[in-house]
Amino acid sequence: MRRTGFLFDRRFLLHETGPYHPETPERLDAIYKGIEEGGLFDKLTVIQACRADDAWIESVHDKKYIDRFRDTCVAGRKVLDYPDNQMCGDTYDIAYLAVGGILKTIDKVMDGTLDNAFCAVRPPGHHAEIDTAMGFCYFNNVAIAARYLQQQWQIGRVGIVDFDVHHGNGTQHIFEKDASVFYYSIHQHPSFAYPGTGREFETGSGKGHGFTKNSPALPGHSDSDYQSLIEADLLPAFENFVPEMILLSTGFDAHEDDDMSDINLSTEWYSWMMEKMIELADKYSNGRLISVLEGGYCLERLPELARNHVTILLQD
């Protein structure tokens, strides 16, 4: 059995998005429930979140944006930048906690206390741009994690795999000129899904050219299409890049029962994907792997998806 961390903090539930919003606290309840029902808590190391240092948030985001986020929150306004980004008075603090918890998890994996981890955080991060909140995201959790790995733990090459059904525009843009971070994303084709980026011809720019790879999938595509794309696009890309550490932007919203998209993945595909990711981690990063939650909105499916996710992280 591997030593697997589970970042979970009840305070992540305090980020309220109002009625009619799919990114709800209940998502984390569902994930927690699934892991509990699987009897997995005894096997996991539960990690409590803590507030991130400003410096790490600022390693990705503009100071002016961070201040604007704070001021909007303190003033009691409910929306930042786009109507999608509904928030409450606690949102700013919770976003700091999510990042802080992920960085704490990185420390435990990098100092050898843990092999891998699943960070069940809210709010999600991959749509957040350097200076703009987008698509329910405020701070780009995974992007900050990548910078932290490089600056705090001297990791040279970080590979990010984003399998949320939406393209991680924020993460791509933050690293598009950076050859030390490879961003791979598989998602529903941008002509049919938010945010409208992530086309095959987006491959990075300047020194980062060739270090971004997108696999758009057409509506209706399912397990075998996704599996072929991972094998044809991601595996060779990492073979060339040779990541020293792998971060996952884990989104469960490509599931067939999740109505945020028209991609029809089964629960089994998610297990296949995680087994592949473990293989990659064993091959390139000494087994070290950190998965960070992005989307996934089907409350009926989240328990089993989270349970399988963690079960595979624990397996030898």
Partner: peptide, 24 residues
């Protein structure tokens, strides 16, 4: 539509009796 929050509006249109087009 300038939003990620698409499922509620799709459900609403279906409930109003509109046929949603399968993009494929």
């Amino acid at each position: 539509l300038l939003t990620l929050n698409i499922s509620a509006v799709k459900r609403k249109l279906a409930k109003l009796g509109y046929e949603l087009i399968d993009p494929m």
